[in-house]
Amino acid sequence: MHELLVLSSSLSKLYWVISPQLALHIPDGFLSLPVSLVTWVVAIGLIVMALGQVKSEHQERTVPLMGVCAAFIFAAQMINFPIPGGTSGHLLGGTLAGVLLGPWAGSLVMTVVFIVQGTLFQDGGLTVLGANIFNMGLVGTFGGYYFYKALRSTFGFNSWRGTSVALAIAAWTSVVVASLICAIQLALSGTVSLGIAISAMLTWHVLIGIGEAIITVIAVSYIWQARPDLLYDPPKRSSLPRPLVQR
């Protein structure tokens, strides 16, 4: 009982240090109508295609994994990690979702996360939801995923070393590219000039991307050890004994 009281009082103290966060979540009012509309059209187009694609894949395997992946990314996005300079960042998770589920199912997972954040928790504007889905979701699930796949083929598709290097680079790049695209959207909307937007966004997101890389590598390393067969591109393990394979 006493411990509970201590715990709850320390938790309530901690609560006061938490304030609303946007991350890369664009609020209503930052983007012009044309920019919002174009990003909505692109996001909806890709989501409709994704729904069709996932329907034709093996659902009994994919659907429970999609749910658990969405749950993890939602939870992880709540955790802002501090970066030097008095700023913070959190996982976006697009690359992680793509690596686990493939770009199509991964895109649906990210879409669900941003819809719930925007509607239930007022995180990210509803008028700019298309832009948020595109920047923080689709850039990672498509761009991050295909970049990871190309890098993994280069560095060693079936080795953890090659895979982890590919994951780290792709996850970091997806955050930097997402911040660049966000900067361009802000500039096109007349909110801030392009040069300033790009340099200011890059300054922080080259650092935030390191957090994305670390969390993505840790999450996939767990899957790699526990259930590598569940990865969208599982490593091919030879049936020969290990020493022979390595030789």
Binding site: G86, G89, H205
Partner: peptide, 8 residues
């Protein structure tokens, strides 16, 4: 979670 303002 950190209460610092994040990137954007």
């Amino acid at each position: 979670a950190s209460s610092d303002p994040d990137g954007l």
